[in-house]
């Protein structure tokens, strides 16, 4: 069983698959351009010293995303 959660709720060192986007706006478009698209595997790596933003590995590259943007990305977490 796997559940659908928001990307911001994914804990460091855990993996998930991108399920869908909860909004369609300019910032989501930006996120998609960087290769964060539906069906992509995403790993939560570490959080910044002040706990936001968070670094993720997706597509073989490391990108940092703010919590406010991650709230709009829904992922299916691996058990």
């Amino acid at each position: 069983m796997s559940s659908i959660i928001r990307l911001c709720d994914l804990a460091p060192n855990s993996k998930a698959v991108i399920h869908s986007f909860a909004a369609e706006n300019a910032s989501v478009k930006r996120v998609k351009d960087l290769g964060i698209a539906q069906g992509e595997e995403i790993v939560c790596l570490f959080r910044s010293p002040f706990s936001d933003p968070t670094a993720y590995r997706v597509n073989g590259v490391t990108v940092a995303l703010r919590k406010s943007d991650c709230e709009k990305i829904l992922v299916k977490a691996y058990e």
């Binding site: 300019a26 930006r30 933003p53 990108v63 940092a64 995303l65 406010s68 943007d69």
Partner: peptide, 11 residues
């Protein structure tokens, strides 16, 4: 409001 932010962390 602040808008989307994506920052790449290169090796």
């Amino acid at each position: 409001a602040p808008s989307g932010f994506v920052l790449e962390l290169p090796p």
